[in-house]
Design a protein around this nucleic acid. Structure first.
Ligand SMILES: [Mn+2]
Ligand SMILES: [Mn+2]
Ligand SMILES: [Mn+2]
Ligand SMILES: [Mn+2]
Lengths: 148, 148
DNA sequence: ACCGAAACATAGCTATGGCTATAATTACTG
DNA sequence: CAGTAATTATAGCCATAGCTATGTTTCGGT
């Protein structure tokens, strides 16, 4: 094997971080959706979750099991799913990030529906630093639009 | 279960597409990396691939098996990995997209190293449409910078 | 109060993508 | 050219995330 270049470790770390982000992505999407359902319907039922996530019902049940394991949600048999404090806090952050990403994409010229689609995947790989850059861009754009 | 709202199918479809993009992500990264290695070293050995992807060597071997199954690469035992025409074409598109995403992030104020990190995950969720928006933004930015 | 339907859980399958340990092959070196 | 080192392959493990089929519980209408 060829010797390890100094840049290799950094690149490997980038891939590792992307993998980590991906492993959290499912948790984020479910937690956000549970929050949405509670706001809209007053409860989050497994069947609604499955339908909105576009998966079969047992797939949603399994995801919920993972949420519980990780301390993000609780559930009562045949009664629906509930976010823990940690889960609710995550949901808020995830929802805000989702909205920022969509708004940013739209601001740089991506059509609304495409932005909504791409954001669903992109959001999970947007670091705090990049999110701030997006927010700053939106703030400046807004200012520019209101300038004569 | 509550009735199906019209927007549910669209949202479910967004998640489905994000899942699909994710399932292709690994192929894209490997194919791009194999291309890089051939350019830099004249060959793509399994050990180098594993090192740069930040995974164990058998993990890379397994990924290569999938590349072969999907017609993107070939390999000769103990001799390295080679891209098919399809694989090489994909590598070119993926590399170009990667560069565009990084350049775009930097252009909107993300530090270079952070851009490189986030892009590794983001790139796989950037649709043709969004990529075009990024390219247009870069073209205009460039023009604006050269304006007096 | 019951019975059928709806909602949910469980069982069990597949594929992917990690890993370690070890076998097999090729390359190198004295 | 023999023996060792390096590289690659294989075996076998685990966790995740999807699915269908089927059992169980709860709900709602008569
Ligand atoms: Mn998402
Ligand atoms: Mn989202
Ligand atoms: Mn990538
Ligand atoms: Mn890339």
């Amino acid at each position: 094997m060829s010797n390890t270049r100094p840049s290799d470790k950094k690149q490997a770390d980038h891939f590792a971080r992307a993998r980590e982000a991906q492993s959290v992505a499912l948790l984020e999407d479910y937690v956000e959706m549970i929050g949405d359902l509670h706001e809209e319907l007053g409860e989050a039922r497994v069947a609604d979750l499955a339908q909105r996530m576009g998966v079969a019902q047992p797939t949603a049940t399994k995801a919920i099991a993972r949420l519980k394991r990780e301390g993000l949600a609780t559930s009562r048999r045949y009664r629906g799913v509930f976010l823990t404090e940690t889960g609710a806090a995550l949901a808020m952050r995830v929802r805000a990030r989702h909205r920022t990403v969509v708004a940013f994409l739209v601001a740089v010229g991506v059509p609304e529906d495409v932005a909504e689609m791409d954001a669903e995947g992109i959001e999970h790989h947007v670091s705090r630093h990049t999110l701030t850059a997006f927010e700053d861009y939106l703030a400046n754009r807004l200012a520019a639009d209101h300038r004569p």
